[in-house]
Amino acid sequence: MTEKIGGKLIKFGDNVNTDVIIPGRYLVSIDPQELAKHAFEPLGPEVQKRLWVSQVVVGGKNFGCGSAREQAASCLIGAGIKAVLAKSFSRVFFRNCINTGLPAVECPEAAEVAADGGEIRIDLAQGRVDVQGKKFSFASYPESLKQILDAGGLIPYLAKYVLPQQEASKR
């Protein structure tokens, strides 16, 4: 987990759903780069172009509602997004972010003032957001989730820590 993330932000409204983030027809792929080409396709090429030059996605409430498709998180990683900040997240999308190693930060105040195309800085370790010249704080992750993010997602975390232990205990 990169502790300090920053750059240009792209802002969306409330209830952005997974069919808009990555349409079902592209789920035949699991390659983040390939998926990134189709991220937010229903919203048109202008939005897509702005996504590809942004580092942080800012959403309103219930960001990522809808399907359990993990590609809704991994397509953003493929598009070069380093973090998602929103007023609130849908449950499965939040889990998919953590499990694919993409920090998902819930901070309603920062999401409210963030201006589309503006700059944002997120300090994960300190739980601080810097946006529009204002500073906000957010609750840091529980230790168990922090470890998953630190490892770069659930699968690298398991490969590094859990499976070797499982093997050792069988011996």
């Binding site: 359990a68 993990e70 998180a73 889990r95 499990n99 997602g153 659930l154 699968i155 398991l158």
Partner: peptide
């Protein structure tokens, strides 16, 4: 690996949707 896994509550079970990495984690661990 489907959000509508919530349906299993109809038979008194706790069903919940997860991503494919999570499901794989359960396969292995």
């Amino acid at each position: 690996t489907d959000s509508h896994t919530t349906i299993y509550g109809s038979l008194g079970a706790l069903g919940t949707g997860v991503g494919f990495s999570e499901l794989t984690a359960a396969w292995a661990t």
